[in-house]
Design a protein around this nucleic acid. Structure first.
Lengths: 177, 177
DNA sequence: AGACTAGTGGAACAGGTGTTCAACTTGTTG
DNA sequence: CAACAAGTTGAACACCTGTTCCACTAGTCT
């Protein structure tokens, strides 16, 4: 294997820091708040380094949102497929991880206008489909749609819903299959 | 009744034209594309008239999105509560009325960050709840979430789904109640 | 008639934007 | 060592932004 290049190692670290800073900005101010300067300020680096690692703002945004979607999908993979556990996941997504969930739906909206982002946006639903195995596809679509709807509606509720309140709804949706 | 003031009549007309133009811009380019100049160009009016009728860009955006949400809710009111009709509604929303539906979800996202927009964003779900009457609230929430999810997933599909494909899923969701 | 009001629209201001450039440091390789 | 590559960064460019100002027209009212 090739000897590690110290420069590239530091570069990769900085690239990841910029990505993480961008995600924080999206969580706080939405996609609209992302700019070379705002991200650079958040990451504590000069303005030019964001353009060094991501030629255009679009590249930066796309890289950030797909990365975030991957992380969210991965975290969902660790959820047991019981109504209680899924209800807890939704409650957490709308509460403690609200910013991350918002970022996910910003990606949805961007994907609606840009085909190249769609695969990333569908990541967690297609992962779910894979995990669920070869069940009734109609029931599966119903569950996935229901969970997506519960999530987005939780985001525009005045107070984030509690897992106990979500559980019967989730249960009903999952029983459909 | 007071005699009509020609100036105010024209003014109101222009105000509505600006609103409609803003909605067209949102449909085409998203909330990000809304600016005094882009809207004015779309409406065929000088840049200053948008600020004359809506003091700030925010006012304009909020007025546009809540108006659009009201219209969408009203159009849903005319839908028969059968799986076939609802499936048709979703297919239309993701196909011919795609732009309008996208605008609706831009409002969702904005509402997630701004409490004052939430009532408007929840308009169509609360209207549905009212129409459905005093049914099982758990089943109702499941249906509403399912429809919302079907809509948003239809927006990030590679091809807008057809009503016939949606119908069994809608049917399953509605049978839950 | 004159006074008042609603609406119009061109010009401009101050500030922010994405991106480019070129000089620079630091690390790696022959 | 010299030659090259990777990364760093302040300054600057051209452009676009929201908003304000003000002179102006045209309806309405007494």
């Amino acid at each position: 294997m090739p000897p590690p290049d110290g420069r590239r190692a530091r570069g990769d670290r900085r690239r990841r820091e910029i990505l993480a800073a961008t995600l924080r900005v999206v969580e706080r101010d939405g996609v609209a708040g992302v700019g070379h300067r705002s991200v650079a300020r958040e990451a504590g680096v000069p303005t030019t380094s964001t353009t060094y690692y991501y030629a255009t703002l679009d590249d930066l945004l796309i890289a950030t949102l797909t990365w975030s979607a991957d992380e969210m999908a991965a975290s969902f993979r660790r959820v047991a497929l019981t109504p209680a556990a899924v209800a807890r996941f939704i409650a957490d997504a709308a509460g403690p991880h609200r910013g991350r969930t918002l970022a996910e739906y910003e990606l949805y909206l961007l994907a609606a206008r840009r085909p190249e982002l769609r695969a990333a946006a569908r990541r967690w639903t297609s992962l779910m489909a894979e995990v669920a195995g070869p069940r009734d596809p109609v029931a599966l679509r119903a569950v996935l749609a229901g969970l997506d709807g519960l999530l987005i509606q939780a985001l525009i509720a005045d107070f984030p819903p509690m897992a106990e309140d979500l559980e019967p709804v989730v249960s009903l949706l999952m029983l459909g299959g």
